[in-house]
């Protein structure tokens, strides 16, 4: 039942449409102030050279900041680390989350709620607090990890878990995985609970049980949920900042630098705001592409 309003120019608006526009206005205002305008200025700023302490002194440099990025070895290290985190997060968070969800859904009969709560708990703790807890665990002098390894006669890394450039990025991955796997588990568990029990009964008659049923029945049935989980993890991995900043600050010697921390370093420590804007635009483009995939996948899901 659409009521139609006609104004003096003959232009007609349905009351539903007016309501939609009115309801959208607050969100649009906030998006404009906090997303569109900053993004616009980031794009504009990426073509200039200026610093945090020289905000009124913008110098036009065209595409120089983008050319500089393409020649900057630390930018490529940061991008590579983001990709490492993406793939490792998918394996750790989505992979382990799926297994845990399957176990909780069909593998155990008692204590499901307790296990689900325990596994989900790290998710509700602040990432900074989680990082500090792990900073203490990893400490080469007083950390519990080294103590355990030494107690059972195993070697510990001589440069420390977070001081060795070859392993530090993986140590960060473990922390991120520890915190986020619970969320993935809950997401996938919701998908699993939507799979009809009758399908498993029919498969059982055909001889598909246990791992076989999981592989041939469960995984295809929750395919769309898995795609969404992978995309959420991927976008999260590209936005990662706090774990790296608290645990290593991008070190040792830029070995754990990711785009987020590298942009921060360039903007606030080295005062290259224009260059930091250019790096942010690169990150924005990556996030937009991934966001588009996520949108498509969630609609299909």
């Amino acid at each position: 039942m659409n009521k139609t309003q006609t104004n003096s120019t003959g232009f007609s608006l349905s009351s539903d449409r007016v309501s939609v526009i009115i309801l959208l206005i607050p969100a649009l205002i906030f998006c404009t102030i906090f997303i569109f305008i900053p993004a616009f200025w980031a794009i504009v700023g990426s073509f200039y050279s200026y610093g945090m302490t020289s905000l009124n002194d913008w110098k036009w440099v065209g595409f120089d900041n983008y050319i500089k990025a393409s020649q900057d070895e630390f930018f490529w290290i940061a991008l590579k680390n983001n990709f490492i985190i993406v793939f490792a997060s998918i394996v750790l968070q989505v992979g382990v989350g799926t297994i845990l969800a399957a176990i909780l859904d069909r593998g155990i009969k008692y204590g499901k709620v307790i296990f689900r709560t325990i596994i989900f708990t790290p998710m509700v703790i602040s990432s900074v607090a989680v990082s500090i807890i792990w900073l203490i665990i990893y400490d080469p002098n007083v950390g519990i990890l080294n103590s355990i390894l030494k107690a059972i006669g195993l070697p510990t890394p001589s440069m420390g878990w977070l001081g060795d450039p070859d392993i530090s990025i993986w140590m960060i991955m473990i922390v991120a995985g520890w915190q986020n796997t619970g969320f993935m588990m809950v997401l996938i568990l919701a998908g699993l609970q939507g799979v009809s029990k009758e399908v498993y009964d029919a498969a059982e008659i055909d001889g598909a049980t246990g791992v076989k049923a999981f592989w041939y029945i469960t995984l295809p049935m929750i395919r769309n949920i898995l795609i969404v989980a992978i995309l959420i993890t991927t976008i999260g991995a590209f936005k990662v900042f706090e774990f790296v900043y608290v645990l290593t600050q991008g070190g040792p010697s830029n070995a754990t630098q990711v785009l987020g921390t590298y942009i921060y370093l360039q903007a606030f420590n080295l005062l290259h705001m224009g260059y930091a804007n250019a790096l942010s635009v690169v990150l924005l483009i990556i996030a937009l592409i991934l966001g588009w995939f996520q949108l498509k996948a969630s609609r299909r899901a």
Partner: peptide, 9 residues
Amino acid sequence: FNDAPNATN
């Protein structure tokens, strides 16, 4: 110095 100075607070 101690071992792992870069990982020590």
